[in-house]
Amino acid sequence: MEKMRGIKAYLQQSGLLIFILIMVGVLALLSDRFLTPANLINILRQASINGIISVGMMLVILTAGIDLSVGAILALSVVVTADLMHRDLPPLLAATAGLSLGGLLGFVNGWLVSRIKVPPFIATLGMMSFARGLALAYTGGKPVTGLDAGFRFLGTGLVAHIPMPIIIAALVFLAGYLLLSQTRIGAYLYALGENREAALFSGIATGFYTKFVFTASGVLAALSGMILIARLDSAQPVIGLGYEFDAIAAVVIGGTSLAGGEGRLSGTLLGVLIIAMLNNALNLTNVSSFYEGIVKGMVIALALILHGLVRKL
């Protein structure tokens, strides 16, 4: 049986890799711009935004939760940060405030789920409306533009020729990897997702770790928002609409079970790359962005069905 487990994981991961290779091949045929270094870097840079959110989303989904509010939390955090910088707060302080706000909203999600026992998708659906509304109300619906030059380095800077967003995303993935596979917190999270009651009976502070993952998801959403506005030089209250969708897609494509307790970060990384390539493909081939929702909706459903089939093997 142990062998079966290995085989299944192998099937899932190698399936994803093959899928990516096929995608690369098809895209290279469809557009001669695809395989240029500039475009590949571009894909990675775009992937980094969703990647950072996806790490948080994966933590939540591992514990059998879901976070629909990441896009809205991102929006509220960035408009507050941008506004604070406009009020001459040092960028570092403003960013810290934004990240803390993201964490706070995530914590509220976690509290609703662990303490009040609200189903996660309901709690975060409410938070999505609440935070988006606050972002709109805070700005009066208008974007905050013209950000501090130093702050913008987050989005536009290069270190050793590598764009900052990619570096930050790589660091987040590294931290996520260490957390999930090398620390006891990771073991607790898997235990929590696999069987909440047994985890509780094993003395794992289930409430604490539920709040922890939602808080982490909130902070990471805010962080990726910081990078995004640094690149765009503008914080719009409608920023991040539908981002929860890309993140969920990346995580489930990567083979993490929505029922919790099963999944690998490497899978999520592959999922993020697939989503980024998909977005890039829609751009390069001049397919109207209106098709985005259709394609992604189908991709999520398909990924879940396929992974479900593999699991049943």
Partner: peptide, 23 residues
């Protein structure tokens, strides 16, 4: 339902209470 993490390994179950000690 309460005692075991059925999909996890035997070893992971046995040591779940003492992870703090062995980290």
């Amino acid at each position: 339902e309460q005692g075991l993490l059925l999909k996890m390994a035997v070893g992971e179950n046995i040591t779940i209470n003492i992870l703090k000690r062995i980290s």
